[in-house]
């Protein structure tokens, strides 16, 4: 219930109407969107019960290693009602062709695989918000100072998921496990996404805001 209340509002990409369509424009729009989403994610993390009691250093380490998984999981959840389209934002939905033109076809295919997985599981909002928090707590950062405190946070979120499943999904005693088994693919997809946007950063043709750059560099 805390996580449902903490769930951020809808976000909009607001592509620049004066810029002609191009792959650079699409990537610029996505990087600008990600930068604004990162601000929202950092605010959101502070509402996860137990997160703010971690040291500031550990809060930073978890966010630096998990931010792309959180971004992608949000895209996945927004895209569930759609067919073969990714909802990066309410006003920015990309199909296969648009993804190909933007050089994001590989990412499109990977994220769509996740979408299919969650569609099959008929994932619910309660499960999505809990999985997002688990992705943050379980981000395997190598710079954690207080492992016990992070483990406690993981345990509390894991318990919340199991409580939800045992009360709402008695028909499938292994549903919590099935949901957790989607995390490796989320991790793999997020790693691919970070590497791809880092290579775009190196090419230097797409403007990127400071927070996005900071988080990108922290990850590589």
């Amino acid at each position: 219930s805390h996580l449902l209340v903490a769930e951020p509002e809808k976000i909009y990409a607001m592509p620049d109407p004066t810029m002609p369509e191009s792959d650079i424009k699409a990537l610029t729009t996505l990087c600008d969107l990600a930068d604004r989403e990162l601000v929202v994610i950092i605010g959101w993390a502070k509402h996860i019960p137990g997160f703010s009691t971690l040291s500031l250093g550990d809060q930073m380490s978890l966010l630096q290693s998990a931010w792309m998984e959180i971004l992608i999981l949000s895209i996945v959840f927004r895209s569930l009602p759609y067919e073969d389209e990714l909802v990066y934002a309410e006003d920015y939905i990309m199909d296969e062709e648009h993804s190909r033109l933007t050089g994001l076809l590989d990412l499109y295919v990977s994220i769509l695989q996740l979408v299919r997985k969650y569609k099959k599981l008929k994932v619910e909002k309660e499960e999505f918000v809990t999985l997002k928090a688990i992705a943050l707590a379980n981000s395997d950062s190598m710079h954690i100072e207080d492992m016990e405190a992070v483990q406690k946070l993981q345990d509390a979120l894991h318990e919340a998921l199991q409580d939800f499943e045992s009360s709402q999904h008695q028909e499938d005693p292994r549903r919590a496990g099935k949901l957790l088994m989607t995390l490796p693919l989320l991790r793999q997809t997020a790693t691919k996404a970070v590497q791809h946007f880092y290579s775009i950063k190196v090419q230097g043709k797409v403007p990127m805001h400071k927070l996005f750059l900071e988080m990108l560099e922290a990850k590589v």
Binding site: L56, M215, E217, A218
Partner: peptide, 15 residues
Amino acid sequence: KEKHKILHRLLQNST
């Protein structure tokens, strides 16, 4: 830590 100024500042801001 200095390199991650914005994240540091945003986490410290009270909501």
